[in-house]
């Protein structure tokens, strides 16, 4: 691909737009990792559930936006018993125990999706058709709207953390669950709320991304790697850090793909984070060790 400033600008803009979705997917993963210390392998599967619900809503009821309410609600409702029965007993134990439990959930969700939804991939038509011409390509309007929505959700979550009592409690627990408990913070309730919010946001991310991807029972697997990478590179518990890392990854992929064959560009975009992890072991914005 010949280099032009137009091409570079397009790749940067698209990198930022996609970063909003990756940031949204990573949000719940980050919260669960940061607060409960769990590497939630099932997070991508919940995202897949959101996309599959969007597919059913569009095909059965003809309403995409309804899915944006129904999918998070279902994910939130199901996450309560899962938290109580599966996740709660693994908190505070070796990282591997949580990993085994959530991998189990991943297997269960993936296989159930295959049994119910089937192996054939599906497509969700974007609820907003058309595109805006800029930088030499017609940019799908839905991408811009969905990215704006994702950004709004990320800002809303940030405001929730900064300006509500629950947000304060969450930040307290993230710093030290013991101190938080000693200060009267209902740590148990904070954990539950984080799990519910995380599941709801993952499902919502699945709904929003569904019209831009192929809906399949295994779609959550490929997103898990990039999501984990931005969470850790951004700094555990740092919302802005994950988004910044996602933007960095998106831009790097786009810019590198101008100069390198795409596969090498993709590898370069993630390999870029290795030196960053060496220089800042706690992530770009991570302070805690």
């Amino acid at each position: 691909m010949a280099f032009t400033w137009q091409v570079l600008a397009f790749q940067i803009v698209n990198g930022v737009v996609w970063a909003m979705f990756l940031g949204l997917i990573a949000l719940g993963l980050n919260a669960i990792f940061g607060l409960l210390g769990l590497l939630n392998m099932a997070h991508g599967a919940v995202y897949a559930i959101g996309a599959v619900i969007a597919w059913y809503m569009v095909h059965q009821l003809g309403s995409f936006w309804m899915a944006a309410i129904v999918a998070p609600a279902i994910a939130a409702a199901v996450s309560i018993p899962i938290y109580k029965l599966v996740l709660r007993p693994t908190i505070g134990k070796d990282m591997m125990i949580g990993l085994v439990a959530t991998s189990g959930l991943l297997f269960i969700i993936n296989d159930t999706l295959l049994a119910l939804y089937g192996g054939s991939p599906g497509l969700v038509q974007p609820p907003i058709a058309g595109g805006v011409r800029f930088l030499g390509i017609i940019y799908p309007t839905y991408r811009l709207v969905a990215a704006a929505l994702a950004a709004a959700i990320l800002i809303a979550f940030w405001l929730f953390l900064k300006s509500t009592a629950m947000g304060l409690w969450i930040r307290c627990v993230a710093q030290s669950p013991t101190l938080a408990m000693a200060s009267g913070v209902p740590v148990e309730r904070v954990y539950l709320i984080i799990v519910v919010l995380s599941a709801a946001l993952a499902a919502l991310a699945g709904v929003l991304v569904a019209p831009m991807t192929t809906v399949s029972h295994q779609m959550g697997l490929s997103i898990l790697g990039p999501a984990f990478i931005v969470v850790v590179v951004g700094g555990l518990g740092s919302l802005g850090g994950a988004v910044a890392a996602a933007i960095l990854m998106g831009i790097a992929r786009g810019v590198l793909s101008i100069y390198l064959p795409p596969t090498y560009a993709e590898v370069g975009a993630i390999a870029l984070f290795l030196p960053l992890l060496l220089l800042r072991p706690n992530g770009i914005f991570g302070a805690r060790s």
Binding site: T90, I97, A101, G104, L105, F107, D111, T112
Partner: peptide, 19 residues
Amino acid sequence: VRVDLIIGLMLVAVALWLP
């Protein structure tokens, strides 16, 4: 054919009762 489903349940059981 639901091997993964059963293996998944097995893993959850291991995490809970055989950590």
